[in-house]
Amino acid sequence: MTEGEVATNGENATGKDIQDIEAKIIRQVEYYFGDYNLPRDKFLQEEVKNDDGWISMETMTKFKRLASLSTDAEVITAALRKSDSKLIEVHESNTKIRRSPDQPLPIFDDKIKEETMKRTVYCKGFPKDGSVTLDDLLEYFKAYGPYETVLMRYFFNKEDKKQGFKGSVLVVFPKEEKAKEFMELGEVKFKDTVLIRKWHTDYVEEKKKEIEERRAKKEARKKENQDDDFVEDELEIELPKGIFLHFTGFSEGNDITREDIKEALGENVDQCAWIDFSRGMTEGYLRFKEADFNKIVMDKLEGKIKVKEMEALATTGALVRVGVSPSGRWCLYCA
């Protein structure tokens, strides 16, 4: 998943008698098992290999967003039985669920990734003051739907030491034609603000060029000896404890990307605030949103980050210092 908060399926077909909370439960669970999330969710992928694809309700109710809706297995399974999409199958015991074998998951490969990018739109112009929630955005984009996924994008606010909404989202439509319809609309507003809309592929290319330009300027400064010598000083930084994870062990010259590492985090990707890693590097750093979350990730990944048949050893760290990161940026990182 691309950087950001939990994304949610937005195109389930449900009956008119379904209550609002039940509709949200259906939408969230169908997102977990949907074509977009399941191939990227390493945790769920491992879980569905057991027990013929069945996942216990005990496991499901540990998922943060679903748990915020309900932790009652009876309520959740009753709602899922009302979905017209028939994506989710409920066991007769009401103690576990699975993706219906009648709807096999597409093979997740580079072709699928490329196809998904072509139907993804970047939208910017939403309030950054915390007044807009994911539920607000899900409701807003219904007018332009159906959509497959809405992904809020976040950054780490150093002053408040909290996650902040960037004011931009990624909207994945079910078909490229639907995305084109949205892009070809005249002015699109959220309240009184006109939204900036770009194809995700164009946005990514723009960011690549910006990074290349910054690197070129940095190299130019180095050649002119304009860079001051930088001494790494260990500092006492008031950041939440347990939010950093260091990983090392990838082979030199690898083609692993930050997106690949996000996918390896599975369901924990929504807690990832920042990744310091560039293609070809052997090590990098992860920063999470919540205190002590690095231990949770360590336990779920069994101390290893597995990407493209390669493994990197993950370790936690309590010290934080200012310095030059492995990718050449000045930042805060795990000592």
Rank of each mutant, 00 (worst) to 15 (best):
D17G: 04
L69V: 11
Y154A: 07
K62L: 03
N9A: 15
C123Q: 10
E92C: 02
T59G: 00
M57W: 06
R279Y: 06
M60N: 01
Q226T: 05
L239Y: 02
L301A: 05
K218C: 08
L185E: 14
T95W: 01
T2C: 11
A67D: 02
D102P: 09
T61L: 00
P326A: 05
N225S: 05
E74L: 10
A264R: 05
T8P: 03
S327D: 12
E238L: 08
G249K: 15
Q45T: 03
K218W: 09
A314Y: 01
Y203Q: 15
K208W: 05
M281G: 04
G323T: 02
S100A: 03
D260S: 04
K62M: 04
L151F: 12
I97S: 10
G242R: 08
K86A: 09
N157K: 03
K180E: 14
M1V: 02
E159P: 01
K222V: 03
K308L: 12
E302M: 03
E114F: 13
A291V: 05
E252A: 05
D228L: 15
V172T: 14
F182T: 07
T120D: 10
S85N: 12
Y333H: 05
D202G: 10
L105R: 07
T282D: 02
R197H: 12
G145I: 13
G10D: 12
K300P: 00
F126Q: 11
E176Q: 15
K306F: 00
F155D: 05
R197K: 15
R321A: 02
K111R: 14
V322H: 12
K86Y: 11
E219T: 02
L265C: 13
E92A: 07
F108D: 10
K217M: 10
R258V: 09
E311A: 13
A314N: 01
I55E: 05
E219K: 10
E236L: 01
M310P: 05
F141L: 08
E259H: 12
L38G: 07
E311W: 02
T282Y: 00
M1K: 04
C331D: 08
K191T: 01
E263Y: 08
S325R: 12
V320M: 02
G284Y: 01
G4R: 10
A73R: 11
E11A: 15
L134P: 06
P240E: 00
K82Q: 08
V204I: 13
E232A: 07
T2H: 15
E5N: 14
V6P: 07
K113D: 14
I88Y: 10
D102H: 09
Y154T: 08
R215S: 10
Q45P: 06
T2F: 15
G303V: 00
G303I: 00
K142P: 04
N37A: 14
K198G: 13
K289P: 00
V188N: 12
A220H: 04
S68L: 06
K42S: 11
F190V: 02
R27N: 09
T193P: 08
S168I: 01
L138E: 06
L265V: 13
L265I: 10
F293E: 08
V75C: 06
F33N: 09
R153P: 03
L185I: 13
E206R: 10
E302C: 01
L137M: 03
R329G: 03
